[in-house]
Design a protein around this nucleic acid. Structure first.
Lengths: 88, 88
DNA sequence: CATAAATGACCATTATAATGTTCAATATAG
DNA sequence: CTATATTGAACATTATAATGGTCATTTATG
């Protein structure tokens, strides 16, 4: 019913987002990698939708000033769970 | 200025969210792990805010019917980048 | 156009996430 | 309370993400 979307597709979309954010700031993969203290290969794999760790994507989001927003949405989702009765 | 929040803290919050979602559905770590085809240790590390891969958290979000929502927010963020002029 | 910069791809090595197990501490149920 | 289930912790092993390098292709620049 819900979430027929594939994990692979979401990873690819996330990669496209990172690439767009990076280009918006006029950074090359090497420049971004250095500022995050990761390798260019890691940035490349992230942008191409391969598997990667939350540390990697969170470093990017923090650099792009999006980490606080994500945290807020996590807290919001958590409160939603707490305030709703279980249907299970 | 922005995003003084720490990566470690966001990982912990994400772990709390997963734990809340799991308990809402009345599942044990073992039950969730089996349904996602991962080990209990992986679920445990996720809930305790250790490092983990996007595959792991995306499997959880898909099981909890939250993956489509995340994908929508990624697309929204991407469109926001595209439609805004670069300040850099 | 020519030249330089950036990216995608590939590969060997290293670091670490994932697995599977055991055990003590907690929480839950009877 | 007692018994059972669940969870946090620690560990060795395995799988794989991260690294650093090269090279061909693509993209930007003069």
């Amino acid at each position: 019913m819900f979430d027929t979307i594939e994990i692979k597709e979401v990873k690819q979309e996330l990669g496209f987002l990172v690439k767009a954010l990076r280009k918006q700031r006029g950074l090359s993969q090497i420049q971004l990698a250095k500022s995050l203290d990761v390798s260019r290969t890691t940035i490349q794999n992230l942008e191409l939708g391969k598997n990667f760790t939350v540390d990697t994507i969170f470093k990017v989001l923090k650099e792009m000033d999006l980490l606080s927003q994500l945290n807020s949405e996590i807290l919001q989702a958590k409160n939603h769970v707490i305030n709703s009765k279980s249907m299970y």
